Amino acid sequence: MKKFLSCIILVSFLFSVVGHQEVEGQVDYEKYGRIAIALVKEDYPGAPVQEYQYLGRKQVNGDKVTDSFEFRVTEQGRTKRVIVNVTHDLKNKKTLDISVQEQEAQ
């Protein structure tokens, strides 16, 4: 019985640790997602942002990574695909570079 309870406690602990790590990673890119949203809203004032998708993270070098976000924006009746790349340092959590690429939506 003691072994059974010990196993349950151990499994519960492992699930809580794994869940906590996923939340921390999620919060990490959400910060840069908010930056990307603010930039798109500033560049396209009054244009509704229809879709927003996190495209993923790429390692640049060392502690530098780039998070990419895709937006669908309608401006003057035309839908555009806007990609925002936010490059930042994982150690000091400083934003190093932001780039915006606009394409016609297909």
Rank of each mutant, 00 (worst) to 15 (best):
V11L: 14
E70Q: 14
H20E: 07
Q76M: 10
G56L: 04
F13M: 14
Y54P: 00
V73G: 05
Q21M: 13
I37V: 15
Q50T: 15
N61P: 01
V40Y: 03
K3T: 13
H20I: 10
K31P: 02
V23G: 00
T95K: 06
Y44S: 04
A105I: 04
I35E: 08
L55W: 02
D43N: 14
D63W: 01
I35M: 05
N85M: 02
T74D: 11
V27N: 12
V27E: 11
E102M: 08
G33F: 01
E22Y: 11
V27A: 14
G25Y: 11
V23S: 00
T79V: 12
V65C: 04
G33P: 02
E104S: 10
Y32T: 05
I37R: 14
Y44N: 09
N92L: 02
Q76K: 13
G25D: 11
R72K: 15
K2S: 15
K58V: 07
K64M: 11
L55P: 09
C7H: 12
L10T: 08
L96E: 13
F15Q: 06
A36R: 07
K91W: 03
G77C: 08
K93M: 08
L10G: 12
D97N: 15
K2D: 14
D89R: 08
S16K: 00
F71T: 04
E70P: 02
K31T: 10
